[in-house]
Amino acid sequence: MKFIIQRDQLIAGVQDVMKAISSRTVIPILTGLKIEAKQHGITLTGSDSDISIESYIPAEENEIVNVEQIEEGSIVLQAKYFPDIVRKLPEKTVEIESDDNLKVTIRSGKAEFNLNGQDADEYPLLPKIQTEDSFEMPIDLLKSMIKQTVFAVSTMETRPILTGVSVKLEDNLLTFVATDSHRLASREVPISNANTEFKNIVVPGKSLNELNKILDDTEEQVEISVTNNQILFRTKHLNFLSRLLDGNYPETSRLIPEQSKTKIQVKTKELLNTIDRASLLAKEERNNVVKLATQGNNQIEITSNSPEIGNVEEEMSIQSIDGEDLKISFSSKYMIDALKAIEYDEVTIDFTGAMRPFIIRPLDDTSILQLILPVRTY
C-alpha cells in the first residue's frame, strides 16, 4: 500500500474516527486505526464495537487533488501514536507506505517515521446495513434534535435502557425522547417522503453525543438507516454506525399531563439567569433545589435556601400568569438544562399542582417539550 495525501485532510479524517477508538476494548486490534487505500480514495476506520466510524477522503473532489500516487492496500496502525505523528509532521503532504511485513513508513519533508502495522484482514468487518429502508434529513436539524434531548438521558447504569434516546419514525414524524425518570425531553420533526417506519429503537446517548461532535453544522443531508440492532448515519464522507440498546423503552406519553392548573409565559433568558443566580447558594445540596412562587400582577418569586449558607430571593416580572396560585420546588440543574435546550426567546410553563410534573415548551411551538418532576420540600 502506498499513497501521498494532503496532511490537513488526513488530520480531519483521523480526528473523526478517533472518537470511536477506545484503549479499553477487549479486542486488541480495535485499539488501532484501519487505513484502506483504493484508487478512488482513502477510507479510515475506527471502532470500539459499540460505535464504528468510517471517514472517506476522495482522491479528487471539485478538481482538487487530495490523494495521489495510490497503490491499493490496507493496514491497521496504532491509534495511540499515529494521530500525534500526523499532526506534527513538517510539510503539507504525507507519504504513507507499507510493505509485505506490515512495516509502515510515514514521510513528510525530511521527517520519516517507521511503525509496525497490523494485518487489516484481522480487523472485524463492520455490519453492512441495507440502505433501502432509510430516510434523509438536514444535518443541522438532526444536531438540534440531539441537543434538545440527549442531555436528559440517565447516567446511571441501573436502568441501561434509560442511558439512550428513544427514536421512532411513524407517519412521517420523527420523534426523539430521553428521560432519566426525573425529567424528560422530547422533540418531533416531520420527515417528508420517508420510505421506512420504525419504533422501539433506543440509541445510546454516548453515540449521539459523539455524532453531534463530528457532524458539521451544515444544511447538507444525512441519511439514516436502521436494522434490528444497528443504526447508520451517513453523510457524503462519513459513515457513523452505532449499536442499539436492548430492551423496551418505558411508555412515556402517560407522564405528560393533559391539562394544566397554572400557566406562565416568560422570557427564556431572564428565567434562566434568575434560576442560575438562585442556584449559587444551593450548590451544596444534592438537588440544587430552588422554589418558584407566583405572585399577583405578573410577578414570580424565585428563592433558594441553604440553612448553613444563607438564602436568596429574586422577584421577576413575566409576560403572563393564568390560573391558580402556585408554589413549587425543583432542581435548578434540570431547569437550567431544559431552558438552555430550548432555543426560543419565550417559553410557556404548564403546572398541574406542586407535586405533579410540569411542562416547558417554546411559545407557539409544540414540537419541543421539556418535562420536569418537582422536588418534595418540607
Rank of each mutant, 00 (worst) to 15 (best):
S253L: 02
E95H: 09
K38M: 10
E301K: 09
M1D: 05
D216H: 00
I4T: 13
L162K: 02
R277S: 09
G109F: 08
A354H: 10
L292A: 03
T227G: 01
L44R: 00
V165W: 03
S154W: 05
G109E: 12
V94Y: 08
K263C: 06
N228A: 12
A111E: 14
I214M: 00
S304D: 10
H40A: 14
T149C: 12
D121N: 15
R24E: 12
A20S: 11
S320D: 14
K206A: 00
T45H: 03
D16T: 12
Q221V: 07
I5F: 04
E112Y: 08
E285Q: 15
H182E: 11
I318H: 06
I224E: 03
R107M: 05
R361G: 06
T179R: 04
E132H: 11
A120H: 05
D337K: 04
P374N: 02
N311E: 15
K199R: 10
L126M: 12
P124M: 10
L238V: 06
V177M: 06
E170P: 04
D364L: 13
S144T: 15
Y123T: 12
F135I: 10
N114Q: 14
S260Q: 07
D121V: 15
F3P: 01
G109N: 13
N172S: 13
D345E: 15
E188K: 13
G32N: 07
Y334F: 12
Q69F: 08
D99G: 10
E188R: 11
Y378S: 10
P58A: 14
E71Q: 13
S320W: 05
Q39H: 09
T93D: 13
Q69S: 15
V375S: 04
R286Y: 08
F82P: 05
G353I: 01
E220F: 03
I328Y: 04
N200G: 09
L241C: 01
F113Y: 15
G310H: 11
P138Q: 14
K333L: 11
E314G: 06
D140Y: 11
S317K: 13
K340Y: 09
F358V: 08
V189Y: 09
Q39K: 11
Q370H: 06
G117S: 11
K168T: 10
S253C: 00
E61N: 13
S52M: 02
L244P: 03
L373K: 05
A59K: 10
R361A: 08
N101W: 09
L141H: 13
M156N: 13
G13H: 00
I300L: 07
E220V: 05
V17K: 04
G353F: 04
N200A: 06
S253M: 00
G247H: 06
D217N: 12
F135K: 07
K267Q: 11
L232P: 01
E223C: 05
E343C: 08
L271N: 04
R254T: 12
L173N: 12
D216A: 10
N229G: 08
L271A: 03
K110L: 14
I318P: 00
E36L: 10
I129G: 08
R187M: 06
I11R: 02
S367L: 07
